[in-house]
Amino acid sequence: MEVLRLQNLQKSFGSVRALKNASLTLREGEVVALLGDNGAGKSTLIKAISGVFPVDRGDIFVRGEKVSIRSTRDAMDLGIETIHQDTSLAPDLSIARNLFLGREPVSFGWLGVFAPLDLAKLRKAASELLKRVGISKKLDADALVSTLSGGERQSIAISRAMQFAAKVIILDEPTNNLGVEETHGVLRFVKEVRDAGHSVLLITHNIHHVFQVADRIVVMRRGEIVAEQTVADTDLLTVESIITGADMSALLKEARAK
């Protein structure tokens, strides 16, 4: 079942055409890897989906219905959660406060932004969530995020996306700067998230990770989607050659002949 469909998205920054006619479909319970060289337009594409900025042209459909995403709040309300490597958590806030940032449980909701946080509920929900995602080390929901490792932060960000039962979880280079163990943790998370029925759009430069967790591969080059393949039907070298756009067929033949 189709969860998210992007149709002919276009986006320019001045004279830079960051997105030219990008189209993409994401189905329920699948992990799609979005690949491409630096500047290919991957981040631009996901920023458009997550409401960071509007597209110039093109349509976005969520479960077959055409939607307009004008803000990050719109995207969240549609069940699209995005996790950026460095920009997803506020280090000076506690884990609990981060988990509910922007969706704080409050009492006296009619007070609007002046409403008091329901701290007991916040803490309880946070520690339950931490238990559920099974982060190896025992983390205190009141601990400041600045005291966590990169991998722990990534796990918190991913569990936050899961908690709001997002239909689509977008990860922009989630394993950047992470150690071996932490990287495995994140990849394991991605699989768990998929098994729980969520769809994942994973951006990465590490093709090995792609072959470990993704179901499908989408390659972008200069603002366009240039290839789409199921992981089962392709291999590392082919994918690499598509990404760089170099004609590697000769090399490939040579490699296969061996």
């Binding site: 960071v52 950026h84 940032l101 609007g112």
Partner: peptide, 24 residues
């Protein structure tokens, strides 16, 4: 310390992009 607004204020100062990405 206790209001939703305070959570937003601290989050904005701590990591503005993170706060914006959460709809703040």
């Amino acid at each position: 310390r206790y209001a939703k607004l305070g959570n937003w204020i601290s989050a904005i100062g701590s990591n503005r992009n993170a706060a914006v990405a959460r709809g703040v």
